[in-house]
Design a protein around this nucleic acid. Structure first.
Lengths: 238, 238
DNA sequence: GGAGGATTGAAACACGTGTTTGAATCATCC
DNA sequence: GGATGATTCAAACACGTGTTTCAATCCTCC
């Protein structure tokens, strides 16, 4: 019979059973090869399991993938709860700064952020599994709504929802850039470092430095706070 | 014998020869399925060519892909030259606005922007073809350098290259968001529209409207100009 | 200890892929 | 017109994939 309950917990130090080992292996391999390019056999190999293990414990590859996504989501929200505008009276500027820091961390750290990587992949190239639907509903929507609350506290009243949305996108876009563009930034950096490129010293430091998350968050926060201040309730909303 | 010269021109109205039809078909199919998921057979089918045609005219799938990328790049830069800080005396604020508009157009319009889609795909999940290297050198670097020139005119002197880089990323990130996040935005929009979600009217208009590129460019430009004004040359640069 | 269900294992299946092959067709020029 | 070389075509090859099968093994509980 096929068991169903997800593991829910971080991997214990000791030995995990096959099902959990498959999920762990799935997280790693799906995150850096993508759904299509991650072969069931390679996942089973990394999990020290038979090639048929995935089809026994989950019904198929897609179900394992869904379980992997769910597990990553669960861990991420457990480990780092999202900063929200609370009754604590913390000024919304600070909350925004913390939200940005939190989001960057989600995207970039902890084994280079399995959830962030998987989300980025799904966003760029959705699986035919409707996984993006679930991800959007369970992960993205709460994040964006949390950010929206904070932004509304920083924006003047009377703004239409589409206007608010534009500001939301500006903040999120700046953060997501460092996840989405990572491979490209690496290439650009290499181009500059190897000096194989003719002239143009202005290309200096085009690539990524080993990012200091705090510095990054500070930059995006102050940049965005200034941007938010340009909001004009006079703009008509269709 | 295998011909080599790329076509260089837009598809003429009349009949194209097999080689060019393969490139056209490749553009469409690579752009919306990605390199790995686009099968040679499906490309040949769309080009009304035999399955062996790709291996005859190009040596293999990877070469066709490279040719497709080169063709898209060429067309994009021919059709719409990048706005730069010129001797025309145009104020850099306007140039920035035009650059943003130009970049959004590159990403989002014209058959939903084959070059933009292919670049986004390569960025999120580089092909084992080193295509991203070429793309970075030939397409991305000139774009970013063009934007950098404009930004330098808007930023105070004495800023270190990494600081400039951060501002650059903030502008580019806001634009790229609308390409990278498009599938997710569609899902989120559907979630809201179908009203299948419990409560939270604040989720209203979470998704994309059919974007007005001018409005989008205006928003990003004014948002960014305000952000750029926060630049502080006092910040130390390692 | 032994029965019975849960789990593993090696092998095979059916399919889709990129690529190759060699004959058939087409166009071109002497 | 006929030979030559470029191009097309159908078929096959070699390989990797997700999945299935069914016997062997392990574990648990009576």
């Amino acid at each position: 019979m096929h068991p169903e309950a997800p593991s829910d917990t971080e991997p214990a130090a000791g030995m995990l059973d096959t099902r959990d080992r498959l999920i762990e292996a799935g997280i790693e391999i799906f995150a850096d090869r993508g759904f299509a390019d991650a072969s069931v056999r390679s996942i089973c190999a990394r999990a020290d399991a038979n090639a048929a293990a995935v089809n026994y414990h989950f019904r198929n590859k897609a179900n394992l993938y869904a379980e992997v996504l769910a597990t990553c989501h669960l861990r991420a929200v457990r480990r780092r709860p999202m900063p929200r505008l609370d009754a604590t009276g913390e000024p919304p500027q600070k909350v925004l700064r913390r939200w940005i820091r939190w989001f960057l961390e989600l995207l970039l750290v902890d084994g280079s952020g399995p959830l962030g990587r998987l989300m980025a992949r799904e966003m760029a190239d959705p699986t035919p599994t409707r996984a993006l639907e679930t991800l959007a509903e369970r992960s993205m929507l709460p994040m964006l709504n949390g950010l929206r609350e904070t932004l509304m506290a920083l924006l003047p009243g009377g703004l239409g929802p589409v206007q608010v949305q534009l500001f939301l996108h500006s903040v999120v876009g700046q953060c997501l850039f460092y996840r989405h563009a990572q491979p490209a930034l690496e290439r650009l950096h290499r181009l500059h470092r190897d000096g194989s490129l003719p002239g143009d010293p202005r290309a200096a430091a085009l690539g990524v430095a080993p990012y200091d998350l705090d510095r990054l968050a500070d930059h995006i926060a102050t940049f965005s706070l200034a941007g938010l201040a340009t909001a004009d309730p006079a703009g008509a909303e269709p």
